[in-house]
Design a protein around this nucleic acid. Structure first.
Lengths: 334, 334
DNA sequence: GCAAGTCATGGTATCGATACCATGGCTCGG
DNA sequence: CCGAGCCATGGTATCGATACCATGACTTGC
């Protein structure tokens, strides 16, 4: 341990201020427990020395890391961007920080990332991935760390969940097309074995078209959003030329389908109605004016932060499943 | 500290395997220094007990946290998504993890986040924000933590930088329009005082149109991408009805401008050429087929990971500025 | 006026891992 | 056959903060 001294320690501050180390700790964590004059002295010393408390040491001795691990299925397509933002903003207010991991829709990756993250002893784990390996479930249960699943309402939540019913959402947007007179409705999504959310939306679609013939195109996921939409619409029109509406599993996919429709000279929504999912920027009136289903990702993230911060060592947060709902936004494509 | 025992410790594993704790540590960190038989014994004990090493304690004693702090200007619009992804994937391979913070283009927020992050004693700090307060610079310098700035080539880098010249990029894409015969070129971007990257692209635009009249629309940043593009184009056409090309500071803004042009019955690219920036999914041939400037965000992130992992305690990474360049992608809008 | 209680503060053990140094067994060259 | 040198392993101090308990000064109620 003969490393050159690099960081100012709490002891240095204590010496400078002429107090005990514990008093410095209190000035930082629980200022009300220290008299005004002492507090000022200590704060002056902190400023003078440029002291930055070592959270690593604090975490070890207090057994609270003030870190939250977040495992997201994907960083692309901005799907979870606002959720992460809401979460991180909420946590920052209390000095908590976010550890980020990207599972890429792979349960195996999720399991390995979860294990690595638990090594940091986070105070909570947030998952936007919905498929967990048995090993991961065991690990997370045994760890005693609260686990919050987002963007879904799982049948058997690990602990808590905040989201909405993807099946109901898929059903709602499809029903909107049915109700506006569409008779031959198709569905486009990526072909991803571990994307349960997408599968649930598809099941909602199937329920809503009851009576109509299902027309589903699942395209290779490596095409990315727009590519999936464009290729998917091409496939649908080839197999079912008389299709008059398409439900896309995301706004990005809807963009691809929209552009493909333009290229084919189809009029939207006259010849073909189109819906997205998520209500991202590109769907707005200033953009494609896409009929879509709005998910308030920011609110989901903020709610998760609330939940985490409200749980304490003494009273861990109770198992809960919170339905944040969704909202149909009708714009120009339907 | 009378907390119930929750986690299996290295001592537990050592006892189970009948070895010293340090041997367990070596099995995890430097397996080659332990004999095969002992290694097997220890690994069996680890598996049996479900031991997850406490990185918090490891960080404290080894003075290496295996964490990298990343401060991004924004999580939205997926601008930095691939960079973060490249970074996190590269780091994961070595068991490093990512601490994420969102500065929202606010130098003050960046400074406060940087301070919080330094409390975790990260092994490196990665910034995609380009404006730093004086306090933040001082803090980062004093901390002795390598700082890597991304997506730019700063004149006075804090330490290392990986990116490209935003001014040259703005100039290149504008020059492309000049060379393809456009005579009255406008520029649309957000009105963000602390977005130096955008300002540099604008300065490149100004340099490239030399001789032409500058036509710049900077719209309120809270409109978001597509809104900025749509409102920006409207403003440009009102003030300069004969505009024949528009340089947009991002692909998302170009989408808004594109849709606005459609609504006005303008033909792209005949009446109006349009360019974006970033080459995100929506710009692809399957999407808008947008002429744009490709930035390889993933490569930038991956390179940053390499750089961080190559630096050791003994030989900290040398100050470097790496130009990753950019690529003009000509598609259907010019 | 005194016991009981509150407030501000400090001392010391401790969290769980790793660094440093030490040790015993073994190989190998002369 | 012996000492130099390597390999595998262990003991102990330590990283920098916080928890717990203790202490002395001062307030308050009856």
């Amino acid at each position: 341990m003969a490393l050159e001294k690099k960081w100012v320690t709490m002891g240095d501050v204590a010496r400078e201020a002429g107090v005990g180390t514990i008093t410095v700790s209190r000035v930082i964590r629980t200022p009300t427990k220290v008299s005004q004059t002492t507090r000022d002295k200590v704060q002056a010393a902190i400023a003078k020395l440029g002291y930055v408390p070592d959270e690593t040491a604090g975490a070890l001795s207090s057994q609270r890391s003030r870190m939250v691990g977040a495992l997201v299925s994907t960083l692309e397509a901005s799907i979870f961007a606002s959720t992460i933002e809401g979460l991180s903003t909420g946590l920052r207010a209390e000095g908590y920080q976010l550890l980020l991991g990207n599972t890429e829709y792979e349960p195996e990756t999720e399991a390995s990332l979860a294990a690595t993250m638990l090594g940091r002893r986070p105070d909570a784990l947030v998952l936007t991935s919905d498929q967990h390996t048995e090993a991961a479930r065991t690990l997370m249960n045994r760890a005693g760390v609260p686990v919050i699943e987002l963007w879904e309402l799982p049948e058997s939540p690990i602990h808590a969940a905040i989201g909405f019913s993807n099946a109901a959402a898929g059903e709602a947007i499809t029903r909107h097309l049915v109700e506006t007179g569409r008779k031959r409705i198709a569905f486009i999504g990526p072909d991803r074995a571990n994307d349960r959310r997408g599968q649930l939306r598809q099941s909602g679609y199937l329920r809503a078209i009851a009576g109509q013939e299902p027309r589903v195109a699942l395209m290779p996921a490596d095409l990315k959003g727009a590519g999936i939409g464009a290729a998917g619409l091409a496939q649908i029109l080839e197999r079912y030329p008389d299709t008059d509406a398409v439900v896309c599993v995301s706004d990005a996919i809807a963009l691809g389908a929209y552009c493909e429709a333009m290229r084919r000279g189809l009029s939207v929504p006259r010849d073909l109605a189109l819906t997205g999912f998520g209500d991202f920027d590109l769907a707005s009136d200033a953009g494609l004016a896409l009929t879509t289903l709005r998910i308030d990702g920011h609110a989901i993230g903020a709610k998760a932060a609330d939940l985490i911060l409200s749980g304490t060592k003494a009273a861990p947060l109770p198992p809960t499943v919170i339905d944040m709902g969704f909202e149909l936004i009708r714009r120009g494509t339907s």
